[in-house]
């Protein structure tokens, strides 16, 4: 059986726009991005994947960020990135700057803020009790999320 080749490239989160521009210029397709909270680290790991459809390889670019660090959006370069970036914000609390479509915390209808950051057994305050519940776009006619 043949194998799907992939490479892992460590990057600095501050460089993601430059990295994405280079991948875009090289004809790479944006696959996805996601966040992760490692068990042994208080930082967050953010990952962007780019595919080369000519040779069917995937490059996974990884960066570690502090919880309050802001990450640049790549959705102006790759419009299909906006769902993933909104998801990173809603599930992991990653602040993403200059989103193409910013749902401002209302992408998913969540009971807790950043639920994927919780450690097992951790008690958390629900969003509505903490006063953090967003006005969810789409609940009312004409209430569209902010588009850039």
């Amino acid at each position: 059986m043949t194998t799907q080749s992939f490479t892992i490239t460590p990057i600095q989160a501050a460089d993601i726009l430059r990295v994405a521009r280079e991948r875009k210029a090289a004809g790479r397709r944006f696959v996805e991005c996601h966040a992760n909270r490692p068990y042994k680290d208080d930082r967050l790991e953010v990952t962007w994947s780019f595919a080369n459809d000519d040779d069917q390889t995937v490059e996974v670019c990884e960066a570690f960020i502090q919880k309050d660090e802001v990450v640049d959006s790549v959705s102006h370069l790759y419009p299909c990135a906006f769902p993933f970036e909104n998801e990173m914000h809603d599930l992991y609390g990653v602040t993403v700057r200059d989103l193409l479509i910013d749902y401002q915390g209302g992408f998913y209808r969540l009971h807790f803020d950043a639920p994927m950051l919780a450690r097992p057994g951790e008690q958390r305050v629900p969003r509505h009790a903490a006063g953090n519940a967003p006005t969810t776009p789409g609940d009312q006619a004409g209430d569209a999320p902010a588009t850039d």
């Binding site: 696959v31 992760n36 490692p38 790991e45 990952t47 994947s49 995937v58 769902p83």
Partner: peptide, 28 residues
């Protein structure tokens, strides 16, 4: 295309499992 990513941490549980499904990237 569906994309799957996993990271291990030396235990029987994965540290991270990620699925990117085709509809997500077809919505834009």
């Amino acid at each position: 295309e569906a994309f799957y990513y996993a990271k291990g941490n030396g235990t029987m549980n994965l540290e991270r499992f990620r699925v990117r499904t085709p509809t997500t990237t077809n919505i834009p």
